[in-house]
Structures are given as structure tokens and as C-alpha cells.
Write a protein that binds this DNA or RNA. Structure first.
Lengths: 242, 242
DNA sequence: TATAAGCTCTCACGTTACGTGAAAGTCAAT
DNA sequence: ATTGACTTTCACGTAACGTGAGAGCTTATA
């Protein structure tokens, strides 16, 4: 889908979509020759969620953090969104009633109390906003970035478990049996959850852990020297399983 | 009533009241000596109306027009509000439908086990696809994505250059000299900018280009069959440089 | 009565989330 | 080949405040 189609579909401007692209909130794929944006179905889904949070009064910056957050569950967010929509529609009905009554009263020359006049119109407190804030409001950017691609909580927990388990073995030998068993868990986990690694690729990945300080830093959070340890264990693992 | 009291009472900021004063929307009386603002009861009533219209989405300018207009007919305004409400409720119904469909699709997505491996990381259905591609190019995205590796514009441009150059050779043989020279550029570029690839890893990467449709799709944007072409060229390159 | 704490004032620049052209390239149909 | 509808990227403009800074006003308490 092209910009204008999307814009019309969801009722926002093309400039808004450009803006979201600019700030990295919603980046559609682009034809490398023409530069034309193309929005996929998943882009549209994400856009929905963005507009949802926007409706709740979050800033675009905050929304970006939220949707990059590891504890951000799309399905959960959608269900909350649904709940909000149903409730809000009811509220609109109430407002409609009130307005109708006001019109009637006006036409009948009656006066309404101020309280009655503003019935249903009080948006000063939005229960969903609080709920959403509670749920996604306090994400840390680093963590968010680290898991930018939608790792869910269970996966994240599992990863941390493995890291911790490996960190406990830091005193020992990366080539020891226990280390190899632990690193196999890592290998299996990656294969199951991300992409299929050949033993060679696994070795290469292990090498990256020490070559690239960005990996190293992240991994060493679980234990000083863990990156080095894992690297050696992974290379050994690769050798054994070639 | 003084500014702060009013602000707290109605839940807005002092600055907002100052602003409304500035633009002439709500001008309280001012002590000519001190300049202190004092809000009367009628000021508060007017403020209520202002906030009422604001809630309905009017701009301050429009609100000013409305409340200053001699032909401002409350009844007519209310009828307009009514229309807005009806429209908005319809919009909510539509959104509700869409959300329900999305939830259904998400929950129904359980049965897809073919692409199960790529779960949250399936780029064909992942909103972060382009962010990832932009950031890390077509290298092993999965692990890399967990770190904030920035790829700058120059790098992106360089990558596109190489892709285009290769696309021009599509008619020829991947094992030809020119193709090999071009693919060496790719090899050098990856080694320089991302991580060190052994020729074997490079071969593996090349194979992924055709095995994994995510890569294929991305690469083929630069030319139909480019992924296949590059793959063959990379395998050949690996053989020659082992 | 002095003095500090707390409110208030007016600049005036900063920010967010886009709006609004302008100039140039792209697409589709005549 | 041309036209008209779309698209792109600058780049400046705008609305509705936010955020101090510096200075004056008010009031409780010593």
C-alpha cells in the first residue's frame, strides 16, 4: 500500500506518515530506486497500535519506547484497545443522550444544571491511560532497544536463564562437559527461536561475541568475561559438532 | 480566584491560563498595580465552555470565534456537536471491527507452524523489518538486532551501490571475473563494516540468501533473481578463497 | 519588622507533532 | 509524448503550550 491509500484508510495525513518514518516510529519499506514507501499489513497493524497509544495521550517518543519494549504484548495491547473502544462508544452514546436532552431543554426553554450539561464529557481521567502507563510506561530505552525485534517475555526470561547458568560456570573450562551442555542449550534456543545455525555459523557467532564490543558489553552484564567464555565454548561446540 | 487555584481546580497548567490570556481567549481582570490575574465566576464559566469545545477538538482560534461570534447560537452549536458525536461513534464502530479482526488473526496465527521458526522474527510479518534492514543490512540480523548497531547513511548508500552494480551483471555468469570482482566488494564491505567473515561463513551467508525468503525478497528488490545470482557468486568466491 | 518561603509577573526561547508549499521525479492513461 | 495524479525530499511555518530566568508580590513566622 502506498502512502495516500494508507493515509485515507486510517484517516491521517501523508505528512504524518512521513513524520513517523522520519522519527523512526513506523518505517515502511522503500523502493530503493524511486524512494516510494510501501506499507505492509504488519505496518498497518503497527500503525493501529501507534494511533491507539496516541489516543491515550502518549507522546510519539513514549510510543516508540513502548512498542520496542520487551514487555509489550501486542495481543494484550489490542485487547485493551478493544475494551477501550467498546467503553468509549458507550460514552459517546451517553454524550449523545445528554446533548439531545440539552437540545430538548433549550428548545423547551428549560435550564439545565451545569453538572448535567457536562455529563459524559469529562475526559479528565482516562482509566485506560493509567492502566497503559502502568503496563508500558516505565520501560528503559536500553532494554527496549536490545529487544527491538519483538522478543517476548518468556523468551527473554529463557535467555537470561541461560546467560546466568553460563555465568555460574565462569570459573571452569569452556570446554568442560557442563559448559558444553550449557552452551548446547544456547545453541538449541537460538535454533528454535531465531534462525537455523550450522555449527560453523555458531562458531562465527561466538567469535563475534568477543570481537565486537557491543556484544561483549551486553553479555558481560551477566558476568565479567562471560562473552569470552561463551565464545570459547561456542567454538569448541562447533568443532565437536561439525 | 488566582491562577494557581483555578489551574488546580480545572486541571490545567498556569501557563495554559496565561496563554489563553495572551491570545485573548480568556482575559481575567488584572490588578493594575501588581498585574495579578483574578478570575471571576463568569470567567470560570467561560473557561468551562472553552474546555468543553476543546474536548470536542476545536482549535483555540475556532473556539474564540465561536464564543465571540454574535451569531453564536448555542442550540445550533449543540446540534453540530450531536452530528460530530454520531460520526465519531460510527468511526468507533469501524475501529472496533478492525480491531476484532486483527485480534482474531493474531490468535488464529497459532496454527502456522511452517514459519514457526521465525516466530517474532519473521520479517515477512514483522513491522521492524525495514528498521532492521536499514540498520544492519542483510547480515545476520537476529543477534545483531539485539544491539544498537547503527548503520549510517553512507554505509546504506554504499550497500545499495553494490547491489545495483551486481544487478547489472545479472545476465552474465556468477562465476565470471566481473561478477567475482563485484562480489569481492560485497565481501570486503561486510568485513569492514560488520563482522569478520571467513570464506566459509561467507558461503553460508550466500546460501541463506536463497534459502531464506526474507533475504531473497529484500535483495531481489534490486533485480529479479539477484539473490540467486549473489548466492552462486558468493559460493564460488568462497571456494576460490578457501 | 524583617526575612524567608512561596506565588505571581513578564519576557523569550524550546518543543512536539505535524502543516504547507516548492521543486523534482514517478506512474498510468491517453 | 504528454498530461495529471502521485510521490519524493528539503525546509520553513504553526499551534499550544513547556520551561526556565529574573524580578516583584504576599504572607507566615521569628
Amino acid at each position: 500500500m502506498k502512502v495516500n491509500e494508507v493515509a485515507k484508510l486510517v484517516g491521517i495525513s501523508v505528512r504524518t506518515l512521513h513524520h513517523y518514518d522520519e522519527i523512526g516510529l513506523l518505517r515502511p519499506s522503500k523502493n530503493p530506486y524511486t524512494g516510494y514507501r510501501t506499507y505492509s499489513d504488519s505496518d498497518l497493524t503497527l500503525l493501529q497500535q501507534i494511533l491507539f497509544f496516541k489516543e491515550l495521550g502518549f507522546s510519539l517518543k513514549k510510543i516508540k519506547e513502548i512498542i520496542n519494549s520487551p514487555e509489550y504484548d501486542q495481543l494484550e495491547a489490542l485487547k485493551m484497545h478493544r475494551k477501550m473502544l467498546v467503553d468509549k462508544r458507550e460514552k459517546f452514546d451517553l454524550m449523545l443522550q445528554t446533548v439531545d436532552q440539552t437540545i430538548e431543554a433549550k428548545e423547551g426553554g428549560f435550564e439545565m444544571s451545569n453538572q448535567d450539561k457536562f455529563k459524559g464529557f469529562d475526559f479528565s481521567e482516562n482509566p485506560y491511560e493509567d492502566e497503559a502507563r502502568e503496563r508500558w510506561g516505565d520501560v528503559k530505552v536500553d532494554e527496549a532497544k536490545k529487544n527491538a525485534m519483538g522478543i517476548n517475555n518468556a523468551e527473554q526470561e529463557r535467555m537470561n536463564d541461560i546467560y546466568r547458568k553460563l555465568a555460574e560456570l565462569l570459573q571452569g573450562d569452556p570446554k568442560s562437559e557442563e559448559a558444553q551442555v550449557a552452551i548446547k542449550e544456547w545453541y538449541d534456543f537460538l535454533n528454535k527461536n531465531f534462525t537455523t545455525y550450522t555449527p560453523e555459523m555458531f562458531q562465527g557467532l561466538g567469535m563475534m561475541y568477543v570481537q565486537d564490543e557491543r556484544f561483549q558489553k551486553n553479555i558481560d552484564q551477566f558476568g565479567e568475561g562471560l562473552a569470552q567464555f561463551m565464545s570459547e565454548a561456542m567454538v569448541e561446540f562447533g568443532e565437536r559438532n561439525k
